[in-house]
């Protein structure tokens, strides 16, 4: 059962002589519960694709459908709400809010949805951090955590609202091998246990090998 579909996706930047076409009619379908790696050389359009799939950017043309919702015509406000409820993000540099604790960072998407930090959200946030092996670091300021710990907090945050899709852009790119494998193991565990769909952009073939599906992007289209 498909979770999202993009068809003939085109994205260009600039105009005239400086126009750059990053995506050139890309087609892709992701099934629910799938764990897929997005591979491809730098400049192939991986990050742009993730950004569009994450509703952070509109495509120049083409179709983008997720959970039966046509996202190409949705308003900014509608996309913001959709993103909060259905999509989680893990970035290469964790991108935590430095002035907040680990738990506050994890609870953030739920607090945005509820308008406040509910007890239920804090409880789920604490559970997620415990699953990430950070039970001792729940109330630590995020700035005081190690790189690997920060990235695990970022994974927990991405899962907070139990989204159907988690987009991870080089989630292990900034970690040592041991931390990278630990993070991937956690992601795989969540995928198996909760059926969350993951699309992980990576250059690392060993990381990609941990995923059930490998999607190769080259020259703005899916090439394999």
């Amino acid at each position: 059962m498909s979770l999202l579909t993009v068809t003939n996706l085109v994205k260009t930047f600039g105009s005239g002589d400086t126009e750059t076409r990053v995506l050139r009619g890309l087609d892709l379908t992701l099934e629910k519960g799938q764990m897929a790696a997005l591979l491809g050389p730098s400049g192939s359009g991986k990050s742009t694709l993730l950004t569009i799939l994450g509703t952070l950017m509109h495509p120049t043309s083409g179709g983008h459908d997720m959970l039966g919702v046509d996202l190409t015509t949705a308003s900014d406000a509608a996309l913001t709400t959709f993103r909060n409820l259905h999509i989680g993000f893990v970035f290469q540099f964790h991108n935590l809010l430095p002035d907040f604790t680990a738990l506050e960072n994890v609870v953030f998407p739920a607090a945005i949805r509820e308008g406040r930090e509910t007890a239920a959200a804090r409880s789920r946030g604490a559970d997620l951090l415990t699953r990430m092996g950070l039970a001792e670091r729940i109330d630590f300021p995020s700035a005081n955590l190690s790189g690997g710990q920060k990235q695990r907090v970022a994974v927990a945050r991405a899962l907070m609202n139990a989204p159907e899709l988690v987009l991870a852009d080089e989630p292990t790119g900034n970690l040592d091998r041991a931390s990278a494998l630990q993070v991937m193991e956690l992601i795989g565990q969540i995928n198996r246990e909760e059926g969350t769909t993951f699309l992980i952009s990576t250059h690392d073939e060993k990381i990609a090998a941990t995923c059930a599906r490998q999607i190769v992007v080259g020259d703005g289209v899916v090439s394999g």
Binding site: G54, L56, A77, T80, P98, I112, R113, R157
Partner: peptide, 13 residues
């Protein structure tokens, strides 16, 4: 950058 993260996490304008 933090504002960007908030927006990515679903914070409205």
């Amino acid at each position: 950058p933090e504002i960007g993260i908030m927006r990515a996490m679903g914070a409205s304008r």
